[in-house]
Design a protein around this nucleic acid. Structure first.
Lengths: 213, 213
DNA sequence: AAAGAACCAATTGGATACAATCGGGGAATG
DNA sequence: CATTCCCCGATTGTATCCAATTGGTTCTTT
């Protein structure tokens, strides 16, 4: 059984707090306060904050501390534009390389998403959704590319969960996933990319409504 | 005058050590040893390593430590492929938005590169070269995009300096820069992108020869 | 009263000390 | 001889403590 290090737990927790708005945009992260609150010392917290800095979730000013970055709508659009470029590349490379077993696996993942959808557990759905999409990306054998895409997902994870809490959105999502798997079966790069694109569009629209409150 | 924090100094130093091969690929970074060597404690070193982890320069295994990532030729090709996608996007957005002052500024930067080239100071050349290219990218007003591109540059900075130590390469480079500025003057997106692409090709070829030793 | 200097509280930056974990080497076992 | 188990040293992970920096406040000066 793997015991998670404090920095890993803290990283997840702080991500959630930023996502859920407990830590508000622009606000300074008071290390001592937050560390105490999380039941750890400042050292692992600081390491977690460095990771978040690398992801652009917080900005760091030496001797002044870490501040929660605010994700404006234009930031969001930018993130999704970059995702579009990189995910298109990933799929273009990945699909021709996929074995039948790969596609089977991806289909399993999509079934997991559907199962999670029924349960209504939002964090389970988002996790399963990630596994589905990254199962595709991973087939590209471009680890650095996948890494960057993952970072981009991380930086908007919080907001995406909003999208996932609507039943009607979930239905659409599962339909799109099914269509995608069908396209993969035929190694139809063009259709897959188009589906992935509309998938993103839907999500960015939903999320930007949430942000611009 | 600004006093650099230890983590910032350490970050630069460790980057150089990875780049120059003092820290070899695959090797574990022994924190205590390295920290002592750099005259600091392990805390700032660990924070620097977290940044490098985010850049993919080192990989982290909990309870086992940080290991220098090895940059294979295929990694290099991947990095340059991603750069191609993102830099093309940056220029496509940036060029139509450029004011005459922006182009003037970029031209100045290209002159700086030429001046540095004469001096033969490799680190000065690479720094000036970066300023030139990022002066263009920055005009896109896409901070996250520029950030990612910068990270990609960081992860191959070390190797690029090899390219910069050859006089003949430097001549080519300065020629290409001049052509690029000319294309920018006319807001010729297509030509600029093509030039930027050949620029990258030249560099990736030179660097992969170095790596595959 | 406005401008500047000098202090001070709050907060971060870093060093040291201690706890937890891992991998390897050797003993025990088949 | 191969294999498993256990222990221990090396190394990392975290807590605590102290130093350094910052921004704001107050006091002084003109």
């Amino acid at each position: 059984m793997s015991t998670l290090t404090a920095q890993e737990q803290v990283l997840r927790e702080v991500r959630n707090q930023i996502a859920s708005g407990v830590l508000k945009a622009g606000q300074q992260v008071k290390q001592d306060t937050l560390a105490t609150e999380l039941g750890v010392s400042r050292v692992p917290l600081r390491e977690a904050l460095k990771v978040l800095e690398g992801e652009g979730q917080v900005v760091y000013h030496p001797h002044r501390g870490y501040f929660v970055a605010d994700l404006s709508v234009s930031d969001l659009v930018e993130v999704y534009r970059i995702r579009a470029l990189l995910e298109e590349e990933a799929l273009t490379v990945a699909i021709p390389m996929m074995t039948d077993e790969d596609v089977d696996f991806i289909e399993e993942m999509s079934n997991d998403v559907r199962i999670a959808s029924v349960s209504g557990d939002v964090s389970a759905i988002t996790a399963a959704n990630r596994r589905f999409h990254f199962a595709m990306f991973e087939c590209s054998n471009m680890p650095r590319l996948v890494r960057i895409i993952r970072t981009l997902w991380d930086s908007t994870d919080a907001y995406r969960s909003v999208y996932m809490s609507s039943t009607i959105n979930l239905e659409h999502m599962n339909d799109e996933h099914a269509q995608m798997v069908a396209a993969l079966r035929q190694r139809d790069v063009e259709t897959s990319i188009r589906l992935q694109a509309t998938h993103r569009e839907n999500s960015v629209m939903a999320v930007s409504k949430v942000i611009s409150r």
